[in-house]
Amino acid sequence: MSISANDIAYIANLARLQLSEAEKEEAAASFANILALIDQMQSADTSDLEPLSHAIESSQPLREDIVTEKNQREDLQKNAPKCEKGLYLVPKVIE
């Protein structure tokens, strides 16, 4: 199965990636090969099978409802590219 330039653009936008023309071409080419690989799945008969999303099939553990986290803002914001007055700054968000 091949993939159109439109599809590539659509997916790149969903994933918030900006691809150069060369990258788009490369993506389309490698997608063709990858899709050929994954399309081999279609030959398997999987009717009557429950999908398996985890090898472990038990229930998830639960946490007590206790506040365990302290304010670490100063420490954590050392990694932040842009902060002011304790807030993370991003270009204007238009609602």
């Binding site: 506040v67 986290e69 304010n71 803002r73 954590l76 304790g86 807030l87 993370y88």
Partner: peptide, 15 residues
């Protein structure tokens, strides 16, 4: 385990 108390200083309840 972060608190959800209302009105805290920004990002002081963000683990």
């Amino acid at each position: 385990g972060s608190s959800i108390e209302f009105g805290a200083e920004p990002n002081t309840q963000a683990s």
